[in-house]
Nucleic acid binder design. Structure first.
Lengths: 251, 251
DNA sequence: AGAAATGCGTGTGTATACATAATTGACAAG
DNA sequence: CTTGTCAATTATGTATACACACGCATTTCT
């Protein structure tokens, strides 16, 4: 980000992407954007390159920029990376947290619990979805903040944003996801909350390995959930040894 | 990277940085670079932004670009990140490796062993330093390749490059590092090799946790070594709880 | 004489004009 | 009806010109 104009362009496009106004795959043309934002193409180009390094945009030479999309392989790899980072962050949080950090984590946990009860009493989950996501994010942010490593924190947040943009539109089979029933979402939230509580307790006990293990299971669970409706549903399938014949195709 | 001109600028500057021609902190002025490379300022700017996202260059608005430098805090955080990533990569390698991957890893280990013996017989380590680094890198690359996750692989390689550029010039106290004796470097290489062998064995046994643990200890050891001559030598000191008074300063 | 203010030079940020590569459409041939 | 080629359009990449901010040195005022 440079002076005010590159910033304006960057903020504008980024906001549009994160708000879903530009869904994954949308072509981002510099001319159109520059006239829409009210600056010239140069700062727009700068902004797009910045967004590319954020992982939200992909730029191919002579083909222009577009909102990032991923195939299943890329998505899995990103999830795996997130698993590694958040797991490690949880371990660090258990070691490096101070009292204030712990309070913040416990507060986020409690907020989720009470929200959970309110949703249980409601007829459907959907109206609360936004709050649910916000509280979940709050919990995760509290932990990676307690880890006291700004670099890891920013990397994780970056992955979260990419995930948010890209997750909707992973190349999937004949889109056969169905809307889950209230009972299913209730059960799902219970599982998530139990994971959060387990993580929180491990961090409170300053037990690094336990925190890491709990967080890794939690993230893996999230990954499984978001990958289930897609092609090749099962994840984390231990890759078996490739035979010589199969190796031919692996080039 | 865009078409040929941005590429030319990117490759040129990147090479100069990695070769040490532009040490950490060097100011990178667009005009000078553009005339030197033979393109205009625009692709140079693009290249610099790309390098910034690689973490090799930092750009401050109106102040221009310079080769990335780090203070001790930033460096520690990067090392911690590398620890998390390489540890996880080792675990993945233990699970996902195929026979060819394992051969490559064992080959790299063997190459290091024989190189080690040659150096033991030599009078000083220094002439072999470049080979030593190359073999070490080969070993690490073999592992992160076997992990079968291109995203994690590229992240780790990125960190390695940043480390290479930045490590020379971390803000250190009255530069009191001394040249280690031959006996010391011999002992050091023995330790490194033992770590590598342990990692290799764990991966051969398809033991993920063992591979991760061994790799984490190995990286931690490397970090300790590179941080020892610097200010606040000890790393990984479990942060104790901050008192209320101390918290005032933590803002 | 010391400190503050001001003018100048350098370099970045921005806009725009030009060249070139890619896409789209039509048209012709099989 | 399909396919392949060609041209026109469109958007990108690059170069360059202009404007402004920052640093520095000289000047000026107290």
């Amino acid at each position: 980000m440079q002076t005010v104009n590159s910033d304006r362009a960057y903020d504008f496009i980024r906001r549009r992407i994160l708000d879903g106004d530009y869904p994954a795959g949308t072509a981002l043309m510099t001319e159109q954007l520059s006239s829409e934002i009210g600056v010239s193409r140069t700062p727009v180009r700068d902004a797009l390159r910045q967004l590319e390094s954020d992982g939200l945009v992909s730029i191919r030479p002579r083909l222009g920029a577009s909102v990032k999309t991923m195939d299943l392989k890329e998505f899995r790899e990103m999830c795996e990376l997130r698993l590694a980072l958040e797991g490690h962050a949880a371990a660090l949080a258990a070691l490096n947290r101070n009292a204030a950090d712990l309070r913040e984590i416990q507060f986020a946990l409690e907020a989720m619990r009470s929200l959970n009860e309110r949703i249980l009493a409601a007829k459907q989950e959907d109206p609360w979805r936004r709050d649910l996501i916000r509280e979940d994010v709050r919990f995760h942010i509290a932990i990676i903040t307690a880890a006291k490593n700004d670099l890891i924190k920013s990397e994780i947040l970056r992955l979260h944003l990419i995930n948010r943009v890209v997750a909707e539109k992973i190349e999937r089979n004949p889109d056969k996801r169905r809307v889950p029933s209230k009972a299913e979402t209730d059960a799902r939230r219970r599982v998530v909350f139990a994971s959060h509580r387990e993580i929180c307790q491990a961090i409170a006990a300053a037990d690094g390995p336990a925190a890491k293990g709990a967080m890794e299971r939690h993230i893996q669970d999230i990954i499984d959930q978001s990958l289930r409706p897609m092609s090749g549903g099962q994840s984390r399938q231990p890759t078996r040894e490739l035979s010589a014949d199969e190796l031919v195709y692996s080039a």
